[in-house]
Design a protein around this nucleic acid. Structure first.
Lengths: 192, 192
DNA sequence: CGCGCAGGTTAACGATCGCTAACCTGGGGG
DNA sequence: CCCCCAGGTTAGCGATCGTTAACCTGCGCG
């Protein structure tokens, strides 16, 4: 037990998580064996179990971490905003930025979350629900008489719009960034 | 070989395809064994091979069929429209209707298409590309100076918005239908 | 009437996968 | 100086899966 600060960069763990994100995104959680994952990290096969309790645990840590981060930053963006309009713009901006910088994670999150062990799945679902409600609350401030269920559906639709990006290839990132923000805001804001 | 019209309802095949769509949507292609699929059809295990050459072939027929149908109806909607605005509204309407009536297929299509055998995957990709370009062409008529790449990205984003629905639960279908059409059109049409 | 075949059955094989066991090794702290 | 353990290795087990093989059966047609 070194005196280094708690949770100091254990590079191997992080390398495994990053590599796993890419592989899972490319071939699906079930399409990647632990041997594949190990090989892609320069080690091989069962050496993974020195860092994670199971293959599921890799997925779990990956998805729980990003769900927490999405919610956490989302909350600070809302807290920092002056009104609902600014809050929503902050949320859209954050989500687009995240999706463009972590395409692999976005793919894995909404393709493979059902492969999570039960407890992690429940945790992720709970975090996502809070994140959705963070958006929904702002939407209800902006649209008169919008009920919670419809607001949640709007938030989901906006996530779908923004998260669709990783699938698409060619458009360069800055243009895509602007395009997504424009489209999302038009879809979410009441017509002027 | 009966004298019934070619491809008259071979109920078993269709039952298998419909059941497979639901199971694949719920647990993922790799999460459903042929034994599971057989059992859900009232038969068991290898009896499937009397109707399909392989498990992959079930997925392939499912996804090729819906890709063809999406493109086919999309084209007639465009042909039937008087101008680009009407064409785009027709496309949005058709896609929303399809997504709401075939939620399972939508989920499988964009989660499990990578599990397709190479030839079917190429066919599906080609059909999807044509479908995207059908949308993109209308978008370019509506937005001055929009290049093809950006138009394709817009179409992808709209698909993401509309296809996000199956994931969401509670909102009753008619409200969801209207909500999605409104949001998609606001995102896609140039600001008035 | 008989017979063929569509459409089932169960048994079993080979591959693959997640994971465990048992063993090795080198470098840093007591 | 020695020893301990973090972090690797290879071998192999047990389960599961897709698929094939071999066999059965009842219905429709000649």
């Amino acid at each position: 037990m070194a005196t280094t600060r708690a949770e100091e960069t254990p590079t191997r763990r992080e390398q495994i998580l990053a590599t796993a994100a890419d592989l899972f995104a490319a071939r699906g959680f079930h399409g990647v064996s632990v041997a594949d994952l190990g090989a892609a990290c320069g080690i091989s096969g069962p050496a993974l179990y020195k860092h994670f309790a199971s293959k599921d645990a890799v997925l779990a840590e990956m998805l729980v971490t990003i769900s927490e981060r999405l919610l956490d930053v989302g909350r600070t963006r809302v807290a920092r905003a002056d009104d609902a309009d600014a809050a929503l713009r902050g949320l859209v901006d954050w989500h687009v930025e995240f999706a463009l910088h972590h395409r692999a994670l976005i793919i894995v999150q909404d393709r493979d979350w059902e492969s999570l062990p039960a407890d992690a799945r429940e945790r992720v679902r709970s975090l996502q629900r809070e994140y959705v409600d963070l958006w929904a609350a702002q939407l209800r401030l902006l649209h008169d008489g919008l009920d919670l269920t419809a607001a949640r559906a709007m938030a989901h639709a906006a996530f779908g719009l923004i998260n669709s990006t990783p699938r698409t290839g060619s458009l360069p990132d800055p243009s895509l960034h602007d395009l997504l923000i424009e489209m999302a805001l038009r879809a979410l804001l009441p017509p002027a």
